[in-house]
Amino acid sequence: MLGYVLSKLGRALFVVWAAFTITFILLFVFPANPVDLLFDPAELNTIPQEVRDQVAAQYGFNQPVFVQYLERLSQAAIGNFGNSVGSGRRVSDSLLEVLPNTLILAAGSLVLAVLIGFAIALLATGTRRPWLRHLVESLPSASVSIPVFMFAILLLQIFSFTLGWFPAFGDQGWQSLVLPVITLAVPVSGPIAQLLVRSFAEEFQAGYVTTSYAKGATRGGIIIGDVFRNASLPALTIAGITFGNLIAGAVITETVFARSGVGRLTQSAINTLDVPLVQGIIVFVAASFALINLLVDLIYPLLDPRLRATLTAQPVRTA
């Protein structure tokens, strides 16, 4: 069991390290002169050489690449990604400032997406009317095919401008959260729902369902009591992957709804070529993705006794 936890933890750490290393190579090694990236391209030619040297020394660009890498890696390990070029503030401070906004948005969307997924799966499995089942089963693919920005504009049109129920932009109060959460949740609910519909249908054919019927259980009781837990297991994995996508995918939603958050920060960091900030964000997103999937991996054995058993007695090949 301890071995399982350690191996999963090791994998998570590897993902974060790899994200850091790749962004380091892309952002600091490949550009001909990383110093150039630190200035506004329009003013680049007017900057005197002394200033450039000074800046290069300050960022450590005058040192060998490997030393730079180790220096940055050890700093990043304690959460320090240097200072933003644009604002001059520490990258970690900028991130932490907008982080809660995005986390609430992403977590809310994930919860909503999973709820939509379960609602669709339960309805499709529970109904005895074939037409209703077919209708419900077609919803996931419809939800995936709507572009996020269009859906956002549609929601704004109806609920903000026509009905006036929710504010069109900003990040004040819970009302401002409603439309962005729906916008972000609907497209990701599609794959989750599709997976759940399939695994509910599959589990509903399983032998233990017949056993439960024969015990005297009713259809509804079987779906909730027997099928639900078995069918939900695969959804856990996809929910973990989805959460990472949600943080990354917040860009469009936060832009459309003018919310501050990691998405908006990413957008402006890329626009202004704020290299340390971009790296900080990428490593942060990778870390959150790795963390969520680590949690998923650790929750799995708690839900599935069979997995727990294989962890305690693991067959290995002879060498």
Partner: peptide
Amino acid sequence: RVRGNYVGFIPQDPNTSLNPV
């Protein structure tokens, strides 16, 4: 209410007929 109460059923394949979790 008849199933289980009046008529008991023993299924074919014991390996798939019990809820694994």
